[in-house]
Design a protein around this nucleic acid. Structure first.
Lengths: 265, 265
DNA sequence: CGCGGCCTTGAGTCACATCAAGAGACGTGG
DNA sequence: CCACGTCTCTTGATGTGACTCAAGGCCGCG
């Protein structure tokens, strides 16, 4: 689904289907502020400064590339609605998913100080994205060191998630890998109020689940089936239901410390 | 070698064997400046500011923990001499090495804004480390936004290396993984002038090589043997010699872009 | 109705893990 | 100077998790 063919096609779709509004969209920066509050302490001045950032809103279809390996973006993108993944290809055509992004995340904040992108950023679902120019971000971080530190911290949490992802892919057996990814996603969705009861969204195809775990789609299918047959999880239409919380946590070997979800951590 | 037993023993060794000098050590900050110059553009004021940072120098034995999972460090450490690894354990006692650090690196710069450490930092060889208090680092980054951005950028490069490490562990067959790690290390050592001819230092035991690749020590041994038998690499006393550059690069699937070794990248 | 994504399942193979045993290097103490 | 213990490296036999190839089924959509 994320193959080259499809992406070439998607490029036309971008031109045809995405429409944009160049207004400062308060509801979008509010999502950002909510997100930053969970990980850092913001004062009123910081909030005002962030809210005053000019945002360009764009809508994307599922499976579109937002930015690509080798790009030199001039803006950062804030997810207001929808899910994205960051991924990287090897020369023999295998794709590795590096992280999953949810509303409130700024997946490419790093491009502010790293000029060339070393990976792809792709939408999983329909997305509403807010783009903020590097010019304004640099200006705000120069003028308000506190905001700079909050953004810096955000990229550091990103890095902490990568470290955890390495351990997951490198050391755990496949069923644990899947459980771990599921629990991590759920913890992050909880913070933005997107978990209702035992259900939450995880809009990955089994092929993408495989790409996240570092295994083939066929084997990913077997692992998903195994967790379903063992009454641990239920997958349905891009959503997940936790059936056996106990077993899930045992498998996942999850310690949420690395998410640094409280400012003091 | 990195087991709990050994580390408990090492703790005594720290008390007995490390001696410290609380002077501002110019030769140490010079290593840092050399390192930062390769990735970022520094002006004279930045250099002066960095050189004026008070540094506490300490010496470590091989296999000692510098900081541990769960610590809340109050200082960052700069490697002046020697090699370190960052690693993380799973609950079933398996260790994953996340990155290898060489002279000029600041492996835990992230602790400046992430209070709780989510991994271990361990010396591989005898090390000379310079410790810089968070207080001074915060002060310099507040006073000089340019220095803040350079340090920020440094942590972003760290994150880029993690991303690449995920791909390596997740997608490549074991011989390629090893080749990739070897080439990455060599490229970084080149920049600090630590590659003489075909030889360079890679002071990992085969067990640690396995921990870096996400495989067992026994299998790591077979992979090392395979690359030796295929006349690609020669390992001897913690050093590596490249025999067949061509084959090595083919295996490694290495694109150094993610190291961002030039300020414009 | 037919097509294209996506999911599912089986059979055979291969990469890597596990278990087990031994050999070389090195430091330490007798 | 030798004996011993501890790391580290090495190798074989055997088991298993994951890959590959292949085929078929489900479902939404034009």
């Amino acid at each position: 689904m994320l193959g080259t063919e499809k992406i070439r096609y998607s490029f036309l779709v971008i031109l045809l289907q995405r429409w944009s509004s160049a207004l400062t969209d308060e509801s979008i920066t509010n999502a950002l502020i909510a997100r930053l509050r969970t990980t850092s302490a913001l004062d009123d001045h910081d909030v005002q400064a962030v809210q005053s950032l000019p945002v360009v809103v764009k809508h994307y279809q599922p499976g579109q590339a937002i930015v690509r390996d080798g790009d030199r973006p001039a803006e950062c993108c804030l997810i207001s609605k929808g899910f994205c993944v960051r991924s990287k290809m090897t020369s023999n055509g295998r794709r590795q998913i590096l992280s999953i992004y949810i509303p409130g995340d700024i997946p490419d904040l790093q491009s502010l100080h790293l000029n060339v992108l070393d990976h792809d950023l792709i939408t999983l679902t329909e997305c509403t994205l807010g783009f903020i120019s590097h010019v304004f971000l640099r200006e705000i971080t120069r003028r308000r060191p506190n905001v700079a530190e909050i953004f810096w911290r955000d990229t550091l949490i990103d890095a902490a998630m990568f470290r955890d992802w390495i351990v997951n892919v490198g050391q755990r057996p496949a069923p644990s890998r899947l459980a771990h990814i599921v629990v991590e996603l759920r913890e992050r969705l909880k913070v933005i109020g997107q978990v209702q009861g035992a259900w939450f969204e995880m809009p990955l195809t089994q092929e993408q689940i495989g790409e996240a775990m570092g295994i083939t789609p066929v084997h990913a299918n077997r692992i998903v089936k195994q967790l379903r047959d063992d009454n641990v999880l239920e997958f349905h239409r891009g959503s997940v239901r936790v059936i056996d919380e106990q077993k899930l946590l045992e498998l996942a070997d999850f310690d949420g410390l690395y998410l640094h979800q409280r400012p003091s951590l």
